[in-house]
Amino acid sequence: MEQKLRQEAKALLEQGKVDWIIGFAPGSLKFTTTPLITQDKDDAEQLVINPFITNNLANFLTEIKGRVGIVAKGCESRSIVSLIQDNKVARENLVILAVPCPGIIDLAKIERLVGKDRDELDDITRDGDRVSVKVDGKKKEFPIAQVLFDHCLACELPTPQEYDIILGEPRLPAPELKVSGQSIASLKEMTPAERWASWENELSRCIRCYACRNVCPACFCQRCFVEETEPQWTLPMPHWQDNLIFQIIRNIHVAGRCTDCGECERVCPVNIPLRSLTREMYDIVGELFQFKSGMDKDALPLMVHYEQEEAEDFFR
């Protein structure tokens, strides 16, 4: 798969079919990868596909000018389709290199399972439905449902629908919704007041680094409301109240665009369970409007479209 990707990427650049290639290269730390954004055909040799290709590369599309060949897992392809719906990128400027994705490994989960830091692990390999971790010379095996990211366990589209070149056999979704929905389910067991207090607690440690927003392909505003000064909707210092308002409005803004790629939660340096917000919004949109983000490039964006009769029940 990797070999084919490198050949295709190199050919695309050589033949002038694209100006840029966006993919993954090996990272500088164990079990990491890093986005590769290049115009140099020789860089194609660095491209990799492995269980650690975490980033959502669609995020870079809005800032790159020209034609782009982009490596896309299912979630990325949905973000790309969503950007096409919003006229942020043009389909004809893209060559989508589809990766049928078996799910990405969450290192934090592995750390919790083996009780060791990622630095202390010798190797992590995946074989079908099992992942084995080599640590202190011993091998420990885990079913994938224990080690994949929550959002991967809820994945509805492992293989992109929208693509130009496919790398490998398509994969069918195999969701583990019970596991992936655990954190939201336990929040829903609380009383409303407890839930609110829990969010106050979580958002209290936000440092406003805005990584959640900046890593999100759906957050493409030129200027974020949170940085407006006239009027100043929220204060720039990290009061939990304003942190929470930032997250609420961010979620409302990306409703119908968020594809549950889970990047916001993964990048949060202070461990705020942001997917428990984004996934709930994803489900609300699905339930109220039968809308799934990034599935159909010809569909109208959620907030542009409407039906004559819908979501009426709470109107007086």
Binding site: L187, K188, M190, T191, P192, A193, E194, R195, W196, A197, S198, W199, L244, I248, N251, I252, A255, E280, M281, I284, V285, L288, F289, L302, M303, Y306, Q308, E310, A311, E312, F314, F315, R316
Partner: peptide
């Protein structure tokens, strides 16, 4: 008003999920 309806619907549902009492956001025609 159709657009308002979609927006208020998701806002209301989301706020209730966070723990805001349903009575606090109301809408009418």
């Amino acid at each position: 008003n159709y657009r308002a309806r979609r927006r208020i619907a998701i806002t209301k549902r989301f706020l209730e999920y966070l723990g805001v009492e349903p009575q606090r956001l109301q809408a009418s025609w």
